[in-house]
């Protein structure tokens, strides 16, 4: 048997950060506000839970400043489940992120769902050994977040609405531009970088690989098993579900159904079975009826 010296072990590198996102592929990450919800999520087959103070639908309804969760609630959630625990920090609020790193959360979501703390700057995510996920509405935004150190990108969608239309727009925008860039010649890459306001090295990498350098997940407004199937077929590699589960009539059954639908997203037979008789979905909101568009937060 060969042995390896421990001095060589390195934590917090790009490979381990992006690696955890790779392991979450094909799974469902569920928003939870307390240990009881976290348990329901794990029982239903969630690959991870996202701890936040209030689900987006409640933030939308009640208003006020939305912040990082109380550390006590995060610790309670960490004790309740064995799957990865993510937590949200406000855009630009690196002190919240430092607290979350100290709590050893598994991923930090620098999230537009919370009230931004900085109107010009996102967190310098390279300074942390905990990986970050960030939202994006288009390819330029995704690449800017990656250049700041994000190890996972999700569509922003329009959280708390139960309406998938914005998530679909963001996904199609990102994957559509990736397809176009793979056809660009070397001179056109510079124009793409300029138009996307993104670093040319990252644009070149996307052109070569035909995908983002990190996994692309979908979030924002998913409420049904069919929604999960739709976005997986459009190129999402996993899904985040927020208000869609715990604002529905039967969270445990709906959570389970969305997990099954995310795995069997190409199998209409399974989708019929898991969608049948799972109780009412959250009511949802039309885009024209909303006052604050969360997706516009972030720069």
């Amino acid at each position: 048997m060969e042995k390896t010296e421990k001095s060589a072990h390195a934590t917090g590198g790009v490979l381990v950060k992006r690696g955890l996102a790779e392991m979450l592929r094909g799974g469902v990450i569920m928003d939870v506000v307390n240990a009881e919800q976290a348990k329901i999520a794990e029982d239903a087959g969630a690959v991870a839970v996202m701890a936040l103070e209030r689900v987006p639908a409640d933030i939308r309804r009640d208003g006020g400043v939305a912040r990082m969760s109380d550390p006590y609630l995060i610790e309670e959630i960490q004790r309740a489940v064995t799957i990865p625990v993510m937590a949200k920090a406000r855009i630009g609020h690196f002190a919240e992120a430092q607290i979350l790193e100290e709590l050893q959360v598994d991923y930090i979501d620098e999230s537009e769902v919370l009230t931004p703390a900085d109107e010009a700057h996102h967190i310098d995510k390279w300074k942390f050994s905990v990986p970050f996920v960030c939202g994006a509405t288009n390819l330029g935004e995704a690449l800017r977040r990656i250049s700041e150190g994000a190890a996972l990108i999700r569509s922003k969608g329009e959280a708390g609405t139960g309406n998938v239309v914005e998530a679909v727009r963001h996904l199609r925008s990102i994957t559509g531009d990736i397809r176009k860039i793979t056809q660009a010649d070397s001179a056109e890459i510079y124009a793409w970088a300029k138009n996307l306001q993104a670093p040319v090295e990252l644009v070149r990498e996307v052109a070569k690989e035909g995908r983002l350098p990190v996994p692309l997940f979908c979030a924002g407004g998913l409420a049904t098993p069919a929604d999960a199937s739709l976005v997986m077929q459009l190129g999402a590699e996993a899904v985040f579900v927020g208000s869609g589960i715990f604002k529905s009539a039967d969270p445990a059954r709906r959570a389970r159904a969305i997990v099954e639908a995310t795995t069997h997203f190409k199998d209409p037979g399974v989708l019929v079975k898991v969608s049948r008789n799972i109780g009412p979905a959250m009511v949802g909101i039309e885009m024209d009826a909303i006052e604050v568009k969360l997706a516009e937060r972030g720069w």
């Binding site: 060969e2 042995k3 390896t4 060589a8 381990v16 955890l20 790779e22 790193e101 050893q104």
Partner: peptide
């Protein structure tokens, strides 16, 4: 937890050195 995830260089019997990522 994830903060302890690491990469290292292994020695593998009959194979040789190997880069390994533990998540």
């Amino acid at each position: 937890r994830q903060v302890a995830s690491f990469e290292t260089e292994l020695a593998v019997s009959g194979v040789g050195p190997m880069k390994a990522v533990f998540i």
